[in-house]
Design a protein around this nucleic acid. Sequence first.
DNA 1: TCTGGGGTCCTAGGACCC
DNA 2: TCTGGGGTCCTAGGACCC
Length: 423
Amino acid sequence: MTSLFALVDCNNFYASCERVFDPRLEGKPVVVLSNNDGCIIARSNEAKALGIKMGQPAFEVRELVKQHGVQVFSSNYELYGDMSRRVVNTLAQFTPSLEVYSIDESFLDLGDFLAHPDVAAYAKEIKETTKLWTGIPVSVGVAPTKTLAKLANRLSKKWTDAAGVLVLTEAQAIEEALQRTAVEDVWGIGRQHAQRLRQQGVHTALDLRNLPDAWVKKHMAVTGLRTVRELRGEPCADLELEVPAKQNICTSRSFSRPLTELTDIEEALATHVVRCATKLRKQHSCAGALTVFLTTSRFAAKEQQYYDSRTARLPGPTGSELELLHQARRLLRGMFRHGYRYNKTGVILSELVPETQVQLTLFGGEQSEKQAKLMQALDSLRDRFGHGVVKNGVQGTAQRWIMSQEHCSPCYTTRLDEIIRAR
DNA sequence: TCTGGGGTCCTAGGACCC
DNA sequence: TCTGGGGTCCTAGGACCC
């Protein structure tokens, strides 16, 4: 029995989301910006054709944008998250086991490939149904391992004949695909490994597949070996059907402009802590430790640089943002130095344990029970009325650090007052 | 002027214990 | 003078992913 995986990847996902609700964008170059409108994180095909690069700073493409009428959007994660759910719900129609790998990619277990006399037709149906039901164009790669399915998916977009669907089951087709894939484009091969491999004369995925195990193990560890085996068609990674609880939760943002005053930074940090604690409670965990970091911009080469991070172990695992805020503020005050132009702060919660475990071991003192009730109340208010509805005093109101988002589209699907109107 | 944010896994080496 | 060997835990750092 041969396993069979499909990787379904949404094409230019964020740009496609913007397009679904604004048909005037069809055929035009579209880009989506990162937080603070800093750099490009999604591009439509037309924008790619103009030479706009992934991760490129927005100011570098200003001229290009003007010249070619590129449509620019700030990122709107509320919209993208909702569209992502719709896509996943559609894909779930095609398989009982599905792994949501990222906001725009899912692996589908297609079971035994003998059970699919015409895999290609099935893959095409997945693609067409998703477009029809959600408006989002996707590409589908099918192969006996996840790594090969990734590779097939990539080629399905590159090879115009494939038209967004590529099935790699025949040995010869796999070989050709490997031959035509650069080694750095293999899933799991990053910059460092690619450079080393190239020095060894390994230039294609096929060369990589043919390396001896011992060499791979020595230089690329067991993760590298898994990748190579998967290229050979031996499945080493199963689907992860349940989303594992995160082991760390982090919230951080660059400031919209450099900050020098402690009070401004405290406000920003407090806001991150509240966000982070909300994520923590959403996955029903408590944190045993908290880390705060503070840094200047690494791009401001001429300025004095500063980076520090400090960790506090909490007296006991907690989900209370009041306690976390208190600790975070203490750590920040210990790190803060006058005379620097800071550009970012953030918080990381770690040593996470399930909420239930804490309730059992902490004999729920009256105080902690009160706090838990308060947190529940806050969560439900914020769920219903948006995150800004209840704030802690330290979050402040001046918010001189707040994110710039000058090109945000409406939340068409999740906010009643921003719903699309037909004229 | 303007350069994202959030994760995971693996390994090596030190501390410590018996 | 002789100066083991193995196990565990923790941390920092590297590499990768989207």
